[in-house]
Design a protein around this nucleic acid. Structure first.
Length: 456
RNA sequence: GUGCCCAUAGCUCAAUGGCAGAGCGCCUGACUGUGGCUCAGGAGGUUGAGGGUUCGAGACCGUCUGGGCACCCCA
């Protein structure tokens, strides 16, 4: 007697039924096609890296799954040096540092892979998830125009995915740092301020003020000035925000200061996004976007679905001065952005914005009601597949009624029906399962007929 | 890792401390050349696990495991 192990779901490790998986894969296809349309080249790195690589850039060790064998022989160690990657940026840094003499720069790569995070799951938080990254990496420098191009890629991805209205929010960390410096925040406090401010959306203005005064140690006047500045972009048209910023630059005579440079950068990015076709109502400047990660140095992005703000940022990224300082002395600046596809698609399936369709990629089921004609059914199926029509041939012995039931449950669009009578007349029946209408067509014209129906 | 809540059929949930149930889903038949609808029947449970209290526990108590939410962090 073998005892069975009851299957049970593993929290944080999502899996889908075929109908949902087909939707998910379609989204993956859109991402991949769009990335390639913008000239990004694919790479794939191993699911694991050496532990020292993953922890190099301050990866949170508590959230990293390590690899070990279940058992070790005498004198062996079950532990390995490897751990699962928790994002794609660290592997990219290692990859670029390792292959920099064979890569052509600026290096434009995309990478769509699963990553693993050893955290306690909650709504929209997974332990195994897909990330879709694009980055442009330079040797020494990368044009600021790349900062404008990335959000335009994202815009096209989400538009084609048909997930409703979204807003790509743009800001610039150099601008923020410059402002804080001019406002009198001590240099060693700037990071703390940005980190605190990043929680704005979550904890609200009052709580941010509280934290700035009590935890960071700023006085009330300064805190008020900072909060007023950060919220000054709220609800304002992009050009009005830029006008305001420019005015502050000239009055503070800060052209050469980080603040002035940041404003200039932000303006260049906004102009680039417009020229690349991102409509005005799909992006905005939000001065309160700071991003928690400290390696961002310039442009930063976050993206939200208008109808589902609680989903959080579904796509974010920014510019960094030096991607791979831990792995090479060569300076490799870049800009990158990442889509959290699992969070996005799974949630949209849940709320019905994305609707599961058929549970099969095939559109035609060739039914097989007469076993004596099995070879004919195979030939019909083969012809359809030859015509690039995804086709399944029913292989089991079953009543026609059961075969049609199978077809409608799986969501085929058409069923081919043929028996003694049809074959004798060199014909087949094509049944549209949604409308329950049947057409008798000459056997030789089946493929052309199906194709014309699919294209109409 | 910390705190709060939860655990009954595949799913959603009932059952004063006293016979474990419903809806949906699934399977079979009505139906050997026509699916969805309908009707009839059926399968499916060690009530998460193992202890304790009790004449008696799905329910009460503590332990473990798993899950949800919040913190942390982030997609």
């Amino acid at each position: 007697m073998t005892s069975i192990t009851p299957p049970k779901p593993m929290s944080g490790f999502p899996e889908l039924l075929p109908a949902q998986q087909l939707v998910f894969n379609r989204c993956l296809d859109i991402v991949r096609r769009t990335f390639e349309r913008f000239g990004f080249a694919p790479i794939e790195t191993p699911a694991v890296e050496r532990k020292e690589v993953l922890t190099a850039k301050g990866g949170n060790e508590k959230e990293i799954y390590a690899l070990s064998r279940l058992a070790a022989g005498p004198g062996e160690d079950a532990e390995t040096d490897y751990a699962l990657h928790f994002d794609l940026t660290v592997p990219l840094a290692r990859y670029v540092a390792q292959h920099k003499d064979k890569l052509v720069f600026p290096f434009r790569r995309y990478q769509i892979q699963k990553v693993w995070r050893g955290e306690r799951p909650q709504a929209g938080r997974y332990r195994e998830l897909y990330q879709c990254d694009i980055d442009v990496i330079g040797r020494g420098s990368v044009s600021l125009l790349a900062d404008a191009e990335l959000p335009s890629v994202i815009y096209h991805v989400f538009r084609e995915m048909n997930i409703g209205h979204f807003v790509i929010r743009v800001n610039n960390r150099r601008l923020l740092q410059g402002f804080l410096d001019l406002a009198g925040v001590p240099t060693d406090r700037v990071g703390d301020v940005l980190h605190t401010v990043d929680a704005w959306e979550k904890i609200g203005r009052a709580a941010v003020a509280q934290a700035l005064i009590n935890k960071v140690g700023l006085n009330e006047t300064l805190t008020e000035r900072i909060l007023a500045f950060l919220s000054s972009s709220q609800g304002k048209p992009t050009d009005a925000v830029l006008d305001d910023l420019r005015r502050q630059v000239t009055t503070s005579q800060a052209e050469q200061h980080d603040f002035g440079r940041g404003v200039q950068e932000l303006q260049t990015v906004v102009e680039g996004m417009r020229s690349l076709g991102v409509p005005e109502d799909y992006f905005e400047i939000d001065l309160s976007i700071a991003r928690g990660l400290d390696y961002y140095t310039g442009t930063v992005y976050e993206t939200r679905l208008t109808a589902y703000p609680d989903l959080g940022s579904i796509c974010s990224g920014g510019r960094y001065d030096d991607l791979a300082s831990f792995f090479t002395n060569e300076k490799l600046p870049g800009v990158g952005i990442s889509i959290g596809l699992s969070r996005l698609v799974l949630r949209l399936l849940d709320v019905g914005v994305l609707q599961p369709g058929p549970a099969t990629p095939a559109v035609v089921l060739v039914t097989t009601m007469d076993q004596a004609h099995m070879q004919d059914y195979f030939k019909l199926g083969a012809a359809l597949r030859e015509g690039n029509v995804a086709t399944e041939i029913f292989l089991e012995r079953a009543r026609l009624g059961d075969q049609l039931k199978y077809a409608s449950r799986k969501g085929f669009r058409f069923a081919v029906i043929a028996g003694e009578d049809e074959f004798a007349a060199d014909q087949v029946k094509l049944k549209d399962l949604a409308t329950a209408t049947e057409q008798v067509i000459p056997r030789a014209q089946l493929v052309a007929h199906v194709l014309s129906l699919l294209n109409s």
